[in-house]
């Protein structure tokens, strides 16, 4: 369960990226977050794993108000989530396999289990043959798929993705969307910021529209333009 109450985010310099946002997302939901560039989608998403902290209001993730979470507990919050960052955030000096395995190593999983899981998710995103490559040896779309693989490898209850298909061709986009649909079907909450009208219109789910830091539309099964 995710809940935001009157969340305000003021960046240093006075930029108000979120201006009193209220929203509630139940476990197992699939939610798109749409809105023009600069609307505050990434900021909204960063609130959920405490990369940015709210200036005011409450952010509740799995029953914990994370606005009050001490810094040393933040890693444990992040381990419950899978995050696909808008800029991927792959470790440049680790290869594809190591990048994905790292998310399981920090939670002290066994090497054998890690190997099984990493190979499974690599297959799922269609990168089984590129495990030994380093991020700079991959195309943007391939890097994005590594980021997606890493976000789901620890089978989190909630997957948060910031434009996970931004760099993918239409065909790969549908492949990846099918992966998200499949893990959603197993009960995982998906929160996805996207600019992809086709995706939102074809795979209908709840749509949150943010504009200028405010929630301007919240529609179940709505299309990209709200109908």
């Amino acid at each position: 369960m995710i809940e935001m109450k009157h969340v305000v985010k003021k960046y240093p310099g006075g930029n108000k990226a979120l201006q009193g946002l209220n929203v509630s997302i139940a476990q197992g939901e699939f939610v798109y977050v749409v809105g023009p560039s600069g609307a505050g989608k990434s900021t909204f998403i960063k609130m959920l794993y405490a990369e940015e902290r709210a200036s005011a209001g409450k952010v509740i993730v799995n029953d914990v108000d994370i606005t009050k979470l001490p810094a040393r507990k933040v890693p444990f919050l992040r381990r419950q989530l899978g995050v696909v960052f808008q800029d991927y955030k792959l470790l440049p000096k680790k290869n594809v396999y190591e990048n994905i395995a790292y998310a399981l190593e920090v939670i002290e999983k066994d090497t054998k289990f890690i190997k099984q899981r990493v190979i499974a998710v690599l297959k799922l995103v269609g990168l089984a043959t590129k495990a030994k490559r380093f991020p700079h040896e991959l195309s943007g779309g391939e890097q994005q798929r590594v980021a997606i693989a890493r976000s789901i490898v620890n089978q989190p209850q909630i997957v948060i993705a910031d434009e996970p298909t931004g760099n993918l061709d239409p065909e790969t986009t549908w492949e990846i969307m099918k992966v998200f649909e499949a893990i959603n079907a197993q009960g995982t909450t998906i929160i996805m910021a996207t600019h992809n009208r086709e995706v939102v219109d074809r795979m209908r789910h709840r749509v949150l529209r943010i504009d200028k830091g405010r929630l301007v539309n919240d529609q179940r099964g709505g299309g990209y333009d709200g109908y």
Partner: peptide, 11 residues
Amino acid sequence: EIEIMKLVGAT
């Protein structure tokens, strides 16, 4: 690198 490690849940 350090920032990323922390973002994926490293203490």
